[in-house]
């Protein structure tokens, strides 16, 4: 479970996130939607401790990120929006690095890494340097890295960008499997079709504030329309 309590973040005069409170329950896929510059990535970066909130507190499975960051960090895995990271490492080195950081049992980690690499179809590329990977392959290795330590909370920033249809499907399956196991999956996306199909619950963020939280059905009832998420989203963010 991820809980945000009145968090705010300013960059100079720009208020990127404004007094935002949100609770993401276990066992669901939660989508964070919003136009460009709405504050989605800043919110995810605060949840993953890349940025510090100016105000408020964040709890990962009831552990305060401010008070005990080490313990809180063990409870989530994160896929950033840009997968161009650790380019100087080989795929296998990156996974071993993650295994060492999270103290995963050697056999369990190895088995899981091989299984996931096979599932995402990059097992044959693990001996290559990440710099030689395509964008999609880099995205896949980041996703495998996130899943390797079986975190209770999965946080994914635009995870579907650049994935081929097969991997796209695999990731959707994995997210669903994790949600069914009672874990929390939080993702931000621009692709409203995806959000409509896979998210159990949504939050729409605009100008740093949450303007809607609930299911798609609840959004439709609120607007009294039976339109697509795209139409409802455009209406909401225009107001």
């Amino acid at each position: 479970m991820i809980r945000l309590e009145e968090i705010s973040k300013k960059f100079g005069d720009l208020i990127a996130v404004d007094n935002l409170s949100l609770t993401i329950e276990d066992g669901m896929i939660f989508g964070l939607l919003g136009p460009n510059g709405a504050g989605k990535s800043t919110t995810l970066k605060m949840i993953t401790s890349i940025l510090r909130p100016d105000k408020g507190n964040i709890f990962i499975d009831d552990i305060s990120l401010k008070d005990d960051p080490f313990k809180a960090k063990q409870n989530f895995g994160y896929v950033p929006d840009s997968p161009d990271l650790f380019l100087g490492m080989k795929g296998e080195d990156y996974l071993a690095f993650i295994a060492a950081i999270y103290n995963i049992d050697k056999n369990e980690g190895l088995q899981k890494a091989e299984k996931l690499a096979e599932r995402f179809n990059i097992k044959d590329n693990l001996g290559d340097y990440i710099i030689n990977y395509s964008h999609g392959m880099r995205q896949k290795i980041m996703i495998i890295g996130m899943l390797l330590h079986s975190p209770h909370n999965l946080i994914l920033d635009e995870p579907l960008t650049g994935l081929d249809p097969e991997s796209f499907y695999t990731l959707k399956e994995i997210m669903r499997e994790n949600a069914l196991e009672g874990k929390t999956v939080l993702l931000s996306t621009h692709v409203l079709d995806v959000a409509e199909k896979i998210c159990d619950k949504l939050a729409i963020i605009n100008k740093g504030k949450i303007i809607f939280t609930g299911t798609l059905e609840e959004l439709r009832q609120l607007k009294n329309e039976n339109s697509s998420l795209e139409t409802l989203f455009l209406e909401l963010t225009k107001e």
């Binding site: 490492m89 996974l95 295994a99 060492a100 995963i104 590329n125 001996g127 290559d128």
Partner: peptide
Amino acid sequence: KKKKASHIDKVFSLAMKYPFLFFIRREFYS
């Protein structure tokens, strides 16, 4: 791109048994 053979089991062994050496090796590669 040429695919290179993976030695994931050896890399995992090093990382888990001797994480310190693994990190130094990482510094060198970097």
